[in-house]
């Protein structure tokens, strides 16, 4: 559904995208996972025909992003990272406006947005600028869907959104996928990767890996040791002073440790920490998560 071949894009002397190639299947929920400055927005804007690539080509549903830009705009829905609706139009007026621009009506495609829109319908006369963050997000999604797009592109829809609203938003995306829409979504939250069918890990304009979230973590060859102690701050410092330590990173209530050449044994660490009088010590090998993989690939 989306075919990207060797796309490059520079802004002055900064290369935002370096020969990126990627394809997204029909009906897929595909995640672009990476931090600010990785190139996620640039790539999405190129696909949305809002920006021209320096080189390479991309197709959306067989249509070329440069030559067929007008046709593409009819089949894609876009939710930009920054709230871009009309602040001084009401909820209903915004939706009506977007429907009219695309030559359709709210009624005609109401089915598609019902589950999302009904939550903000009680506020339909309120100005969009006066909505809470969560409600703005639902309105923006409704507006992006009102012309029944084949492809939906969402640029960091959950950034700065609390954990509860993030969960709800992903449930909405899953429901849209069930209706046959191909979805490309970007996020800086690594834990959201597991909610996608496939993901591309992207950093500094380069794709580090593309695969299903479970495959990405399964094929990761490194041995990750999870460590816990009562005094976490001292634990991190002590582990960093361990002679064969390669990386030591806090992961919530645990620390994830990798040894040089993965040659550090559980028993060694256990002994090392006991000698340093740590209490409530847990040392165990675990399966890596997406964030472990990302951090490892990032430092290569």
């Amino acid at each position: 559904m989306i075919e990207i071949k060797n796309i490059s894009k520079s802004y002055n002397d900064i290369q935002a995208l370096k020969e990126i190639s990627l394809s997204v299947e029909k009906g897929e929920l595909f995640g672009l996972i990476g931090p600010d400055g990785a190139g996620k927005t640039t790539l999405m804007r190129i696909l949305m025909t809002l920006l021209l690539p320096d080189s390479g080509e991309a197709k959306m549903n067989e249509l070329d992003v440069v030559k067929d830009f007008k046709k593409i705009r009819h089949i894609v829905g876009y939710m930009p990272g920054r709230f871009s609706l009309y602040q001084d139009l009401s909820v209903e007026e915004n939706l009506h406006f977007f429907a009219t621009v695309f030559g359709t009506t709210i009624e005609e495609n109401y089915d598609l947005i019902r589950d999302i829109y009904y939550q903000i319908e009680p506020f339909k006369t309120r100005r969009a600028g006066k909505l809470s963050g969560g409600m703005k997000q639902k309105l923006a999604l409704s507006c992006a869907l009102i012309h029944k797009p084949k492809i939906l592109i969402l640029d960091e829809p959950t950034t700065g959104v609390d954990a509860v609203s993030r969960k709800e938003f992903w449930e909405m995306l899953k429901a849209l996928q069930q209706k046959g829409i191909t979805i490309l979504v970007s996020t800086p939250y690594m834990d959201e990767a597991s909610l996608c069918d496939r993901v591309a890990l992207i950093q500094k304009g380069t794709i580090l890996d593309v695969d299903s979230p479970s495959r990405i973590t399964e094929k990761f060859p490194r041995k990750i040791i999870q460590v816990h102690s009562e005094d976490m701050f001292r634990l991190i410092q002590d582990l960093r002073s361990f002679p064969k330590a390669e990386s030591v990173f806090a992961f919530g209530q645990f620390v994830h440790f990798t040894g040089v050449n993965d040659e550090v044994e559980i028993s060694e660490l256990d002994k090392f920490l006991t000698e340093r009088k740590h209490t409530d010590v847990i040392v165990e090998e675990i399966h890596p998560g997406i964030e472990d993989v990302f951090m490892s690939l990032q430092s290569l």
């Binding site: 931090p35 990785a38 700065g160 690594m190 950093q203 701050f233 991190i236 990173f249 951090m295």
Partner: peptide, 20 residues
């Protein structure tokens, strides 16, 4: 106030080193 929004996972952890 949300000091670490949007940064990569390594940078986010380095930032917490400063907080500690």
């Amino acid at each position: 106030d949300e000091p670490t929004g949007g940064v990569d996972p390594v940078t986010r952890r380095k930032f917490w080193d400063l907080i500690y």
